[in-house]
Design a binder for these strands. Structure first.
Lengths: 359, 359
DNA sequence: ATTAGCACTCATAATTATTGAGTGCTAATA
DNA sequence: TATTAGCACTCAATAATTATGAGTGCTAAT
């Protein structure tokens, strides 16, 4: 290596953190490079790239531009003198460009899904399957925080002389069951009365509100309760623990079909995801309040166990309250152009479905 | 190749299908070879094997014995002049020897599992997890055919003016819910009466029997029914479709950790299993009536999509009726010595649990 | 029946070209 | 000043080459 080169190297280093806006040509080329890399998975080199995309540029010029983009940290080289590969920042730029040009239109959910299944969890299952089938990656769904679902009906059923099963049916069609063990005996007749009482008092409220209401009653209104105190006790116990939302994944097999995912390092990411679903759950929950489609690329996932993977997710709401999320999990080199609208659509569809059901 | 060799070759061929019983030494050596291969995954060669297991035999003698075992199809060579590898028949011999010396003792289930969870499906979930965690392969469970579970209580709840939710609780703690849409309107009072009627008439019978009973009533006893015909109509619709048993798998990640499973051919087996759970379901259902532990080795699985894998399974019963199965799925080179007792124990434990619960 | 000895096989690993698509840099060109 | 042609160099991937070593079967001696 000549002294000359060293000096040049220092010269370059001075500009390493350059962070200007890209001009139109650079922008187009960067996006094309990311696109090409997503397509082929191989480092993009100047000569073949110029040919394939019919740029009226010489490879040398392309190299100059690529060099600039690399200096600005949009691209990197796996090793000296190989082609360029997008960095997370490069992906991010590409995805942002996509989002700019993507105007989501309101869509309605396919009514067939709704009518075919009675229970909501069955519907959710088919939504996850749909996500994974249409994306060819893994579909994920964070089930709705039932805290915000509104109870329509409460029914108490006697199991044993002092064991009661509380069944709560929500407007969205969920059926919650909770076994409550009492220290006193009750009759089914009493329970029927309690059922009516609880339904009339708590119907129309969300689980979250119900907990507050019960708390209020027990505190303030004790005298007017007569013998219904027991009913409230039962409800208190049953509704006590906040329902934890669960995460479901489907389509792992799709990921196993992607060669690069089965390689050592990625396989570990995949294993982490399957083993500890909580990782994904936490990530999703952290982004549940945000509107629209959220895209986490590579390091942005911010979990050291998961590398080389991306997550496209969208929260869904009941009315205006976000209650869960849907998404697609796959390799960083993911077909965002296809996945983003899919996830966006699904999120909106679930929102519309839930909102309609809970009216 | 000399003419001499050719003649010898023909001489060998004559005995190719030899199928005598193994003498004691051969048997011991075969089992040791399979054991060694399960341990290491590498073809077993005469020299190192004799050393490691301190046989007082020369490698040459060992080769002769191995040659005999190969002729009898217990062993094979991946290629000329490599060590020997067990064939399916070899595995089978090994497993049978294991089973001969394995005397299962009755065990009782860990009561903690029972007490912790209210609902049966939660218990099942933890049983599958237990299977996969203890075996380091994938745990599977075919859920009980609910046809044979006995109903303890039936409750009808009004959802809309002509929509009814039927809830049936079984002795084993399962909660079946079924939405029924009627052509007439009903009141909750009527439904309460129907509930009592249905419970008194159908309580103590299995789903299977209930279908028959309803059928009998509707046919023969129509006049004495008075207005309860509607109750039976509801029950008929709700219990109409036979519950299909479902299969659940957990611990796929364990399989991904086994290097040989991630290789091309095996990975496809794995993908088939994940994608089409029905494959496993069919296999299990076909063997559900058999007592004790059932082991399917390699080709015995008899499904062209799945190769190089084995299945150790045991059915479980309610009383004396087999209603489901538990098992472990993994590579043919599986630690049977550990897995067989595990599956056997689990099957017995679930049987004991279910039998006790439904009393 | 068992074993020592020998020639032979063959997967695995290490070593060494060979190739080809890529780079950066410089000097010429529009 | 931006672009391009030309050149020397780099390096991953591939193929060809060569050990190495654990294995075999066969034969003759014990």
């Amino acid at each position: 290596m000549s002294a000359n080169k060293l000096i040049k190297g220092i010269g370059v280093k001075k500009e390493l953190h350059e962070d200007r806006l890209l001009d139109e040509r650079e922008s187009a080329i960067l996006n094309a490079i990311v696109y090409e890399y997503i397509l082929t998975g191989k480092p993009v080199g100047s000569r073949s790239f110029v040919q394939k995309y019919s740029f009226s540029l010489s490879p040398a010029t392309m190299r100059n531009i690529m060099f600039d983009l690399e200096r600005m940290n949009y691209l990197m080289q796996p090793h000296t003198s190989s082609g360029r590969v997008p960095t997370d920042k490069g992906y991010r730029y590409y995805v942002n460009s996509l989002l700019d040009s993507y105007h989501s239109q309101e869509m309605t959910i396919d009514e067939k899904i709704l009518q075919k299944e009675v229970q909501l969890d069955k519907i959710f299952e088919s939504i996850i399957k749909m996500l994974s089938a249409n994306s060819n990656y893994a579909g994920i769904m964070l089930s709705p925080k039932s805290d915000f679902t509104v109870v329509k009906l409460i029914e108490l059923i006697q199991l044993e002389s002092s064991e009661v099963l509380l069944i709560a049916i929500t407007r969205t069609g969920m059926i919650l069951t909770r076994k409550v063990v009492l220290s006193v005996r009750v009759t089914q007749d009493e329970l029927s009365e309690y059922s009516k009482f609880l339904t009339s008092e708590l119907c129309g409220y969300s689980l979250h509100d119900i907990r507050e209401r019960i708390f209020g009653y027990l505190r303030l209104d004790k005298m007017s309760l007569s013998n219904r105190e027991l009913a409230l006790d039962i409800a208190e116990i049953a509704f006590n623990e906040t329902e934890k939302s669960t995460i479901n994944i489907d389509g792992i097999e799709n990921l196993l079909k992607i060669p690069e995912m089965v390689e050592e390092k990625r396989l570990n990411s995949l294993l982490s995801i399957i083993e500890e679903k909580n990782i994904l759950k936490n990530i999703l929950e952290r982004h549940i309040d945000n509107e629209g489609v959220k895209i986490l690329i590579g390091e942005e996932i911010d979990n050291e166990k998961v590398t080389g993977c991306s997550l496209v997710a969208s929260s869904y709401k009941i009315g205006n309250t976000p209650v869960g999320a849907v998404g697609v999990f796959g390799p960083t080199r993911m077909d965002y152009e296809k996945v983003v609208p899919l996830v966006d659509y699904t999120g909106k569809a679930v929102t519309s479905l839930l909102t309609r059901m809970s009216k």
